[in-house]
Design a protein around this nucleic acid. Structure first.
Lengths: 243, 243
DNA sequence: GCAAAAGTGTTGGAAATACACCCATGT
DNA sequence: ACATGGGTGTATTTCCAACACTTTTGC
């Protein structure tokens, strides 16, 4: 009990060694935390704590506690690292290849989270923790590149069918910001007028009567997304075979 | 080692008891095996082996072995229960709520599999293993109802975007059979002519020059799905925001 | 007054939908 | 001959894509 104050790194290593020698499969959660800044999709990474992966970046993860739901483990990791709760979080996929972790057999469950970078900018100044552009990202530790790729593809698809994107923006945003977000994530150019038409026709953006300020051009209106209305809205039973 | 011949049930129970007393999280794979018969979507279930869930049905699952990839565990279960390998199999979601298994903490990874019921009809006559209509299914063991619901929704969505459905049909099938499949899974009525138009315009159905026989009406042409062509086909970078 | 992005409508083409009649087979 | 589902085409509507000019602000 008195040794509980040693660093977390050591604890995990010891636990993994123990698991491996007992022939037990470990369970972890890894969080792919996306942010949006300077018109780029970013992901929050930490320097790997394993010698084998020295200087490589890794996702934020931890072993799941015995009496902790998977989702709670993910929320815990988010809270520890970003100081935020009440964030968008969703399970994406599990990764359990035999050799994926060098120290032991560990099955990991990847969660994807979207946060507004502004809102927690201050808390990041722990060392070794930083935002990275998803597009220009070199090699990562473990199979984390694969996990990230999977989550990024998931996001690209998901953002077209569900209103996730707003979690990456301030509560109030201009249509330009929204379009930049979609263009960055989907890696396409979109027609501005058609984009507006699309979103206005959904009738889920609420005019805040406020405007951008400090922009060197005509300021745009600010909107917020009406989640209530969205949830009340009748889901069209989507049907369209296409592949 | 010599006790390895006792029934599997006992082994699992013993292992779970051990895990629980050691405070260790177990990992299992559960397979949602769908079939299509008599114009209904069916799922392959077994009687639960736990007293608590006596007479309730449960998915086919097993603990993951130490040196076995998750996917291999799923294939193993399929092979054991249906005699089939080379089936469609895909990971859907993990379920890890603390209380989901009464004997121990077990995180399970749900895989969805689609098989042609005809092809293995013979091997099913183990007791307690049978096909059930997905629509008229009473209560299930553990959280398996939730897992099944999740997989069914996954299937409804997935079948519209990817050519999975053919795995549920014989290699050669009539367009009527295909349409029945879609109507049953999506629970909608579709216009026959538009359905044909849609599939023919994809240009992925191959005319086999054969016809239905023993039908009390004009026999329909039989087709097969051209997977090669599908895989060579350039994926349209799907873009259409809609929610 | 100039640079820079906001805001706004129309049109043509493609795709989805709705719909009705003749055909081939088994009984 | 009749009952049953197979097979086919067209007109209408809806949705998407392309496209240019005027407005408002900061400098």
């Amino acid at each position: 009990m008195t040794t509980a104050m040693v660093t977390k790194k050591k604890d995990i290593k010891a636990i993994l060694t123990q698991l491996e020698s007992d022939g037990i499969i470990g369970i972890s959660v890894d969080c792919v935390i996306f942010g949006f800044d300077e018109n780029e999709l970013k992901v929050l990474l930490i320097k790997s704590d394993l010698k084998k992966f020295e200087s490589k970046w890794s996702l934020l993860g931890d072993l799941v506690n015995n009496h902790e739901d998977l989702e709670n483990a993910a929320y815990r990791i988010l809270k520890e690292r970003t100081g935020l709760d009440d964030v968008y979080l969703e399970q994406v996929k599990s990764f359990g290849e035999v050799g994926r972790h060098p120290a032991a057999r560990v099955v990991t469950i990847a969660y994807c989270s979207l946060i507004n970078i502004q809102h927690h900018k201050l808390k990041i100044h722990d060392n070794e923790l930083d935002w990275h552009s998803v597009r220009t990202l070199s090699e990562m530790a473990f199979d984390h590149q694969k996990i990230l790729d999977t989550c990024y593809e998931w996001l690209q698809k998901r953002i077209q069918e569900h209103p996730l994107g707003f979690s990456l923006l301030p509560k109030q945003f201009s249509l330009r910001e929204l379009q930049n977000l979609y263009e960055a994530i989907l890696d396409v150019k979109l027609d501005r007028r058609n984009f507006r038409k699309k979103f206005f026709s959904m009738d889920l953006l609420e005019d805040t009567q406020e405007y951008e300020s400090d922009v060197p051009h005509r300021p745009g209106k600010l909107y917020k997304f009406n989640y209530d209305k969205y949830h009340r809205k009748e889901r069209k039973k989507w049907f369209g075979i296409d592949f």
